[in-house]
């Protein structure tokens, strides 16, 4: 299983299909911002989102969306705050802010957010 740092270093992409995003790592999600929706409820009963952990990757289903490609615009990112699996979730230094850009052929570009991107945790 690759770590988030390795994925970012190798510039490895994730995938997306319709409302499902597949990230090539496992982690503890803390916050997701998609358009102007701020999501923090990741419980199984959440109306907005469903997170499924699998061996070596994780899937996020955006229940209120149909086609992420159509609904998230060209310069817009889905932003997430995530902690690497097995790292201390209570240490703020471990909170990684990532920007996910849906691209062509179902590819999902994963980038660490830089200072330019507005992203308040």
């Amino acid at each position: 299983m690759s770590t988030i740092s390795e994925i970012l270093k190798k510039k490895k992409n994730g995938l997306y299909y319709y409302n499902r995003v597949i990230l090539p790592f496992n982690g503890y999600l803390l916050k997701i911002i998609i358009e102007d929706n701020i999501l923090t409820d990741f419980s199984p009963t959440s109306k907005h989102i469903y997170v499924k952990e699998e061996d070596g990757f994780m899937s996020i289903y955006f229940k209120e969306y149909r086609h992420l490609e159509e609904e998230v615009s060209k310069y817009e990112a889905i932003k997430i705050v995530i902690v690497e699996k097995d790292k201390d979730i209570f240490d703020l230094k471990n909170h990684r802010k990532l920007a996910l850009y849906p691209g062509e052929n179902h590819e999902l570009k994963i980038e660490a957010t830089d200072d330019d991107i507005l992203f308040i945790e």
Partner: peptide
Amino acid sequence: HPDILKANEFDFE
């Protein structure tokens, strides 16, 4: 410039 639009997360929404 695309980099500026990306940094501003420009969206017509």
